[in-house]
Design a protein around this nucleic acid. Structure first.
Lengths: 131, 131
DNA sequence: CCGTATCCCTGACGATACTG
DNA sequence: CAGTATCGTCAGGGATACGG
């Protein structure tokens, strides 16, 4: 940031930003769907049953929660274990791969605690000017 | 992770996960819209003109890029400066607040380089079973 | 050069109801 | 308990064309 505008052009932009093999993309910043992050939060303390997940995610319908869980299982982020009991019992648990996302969520949360109020304030200031 | 299943229940889930004042939420993991992260990448080396952004973001239509930039300006992530020249010149530059997201993007990129191949492999393995 | 104006379309999300 | 089935919506995104 210190000397970028000293008369020379800024450095060239990454031309491979859209490469589908995208380790160089920022795609994971939007990993998964709307509830993936929250599900990881709910599972980081240990395995949970479907209904246990529904409690903290109370605004998520069972259909959407089920879709989210199946997508995450498909991506290797969690495992689904059904026990042959009555009443039925199913447990969801993070895989080691799923756990690698926890530090990223922590970083996002730290960012939020530090900077989100400023973003919200800027948004509201703009709404005052253009209501 | 070491001793969570020793017979005791896992720790309680955060009940305030849906608090709209959400510093405790994972919302920023999905900050902004589809292109916000890439725009930050494109601006981190210094200010850029509209057309300079269109080159690396070549699959983004001008309408969508314009919407993205206005939303980011509204949120205080970047500034828009129009110079009264002919032909017109407009420059977009990250604000200090916008720059605070760069480490988060770096972390996401690092995660991607390390772990995304495993996720993609898991997804493809599932597609083989259920085509 | 720097956008705006229209139109359209998909797919994530939600509401509701119902089953093994 | 742990989901599935059905239906509806709606906002983000994209294609195309045009304007200051």
């Amino acid at each position: 940031m210190t000397d970028l505008t000293d008369g020379t052009l800024p450095p060239p932009l990454d031309p491979d930003m859209f490469d589908p093999a995208c380790p160089s993309s920022v795609m994971p910043f939007r990993v998964g769907d709307k509830w993936t992050g929250m599900v990881i939060r709910c599972l980081q303390g240990g395995p949970r049953r479907f209904t246990e997940l529904r409690a903290p995610l109370r605004s998520v319908t069972p259909k959407v929660l089920s879709e989210t869980l199946r997508a995450m299982e498909r991506d290797g982020l969690l495992t689904r274990t059904a026990y042959d009991e009555n009443p039925p019992r199913v447990e969801y648990a993070l895989t080691p791969l799923g756990r690698t996302l926890i530090p990223l969520l922590d970083a996002a949360r730290t960012w939020s605690e530090r900077h989100l109020p400023r973003l919200v304030a800027a948004r509201r200031a703009h709404e005052r000017d253009a209501p």
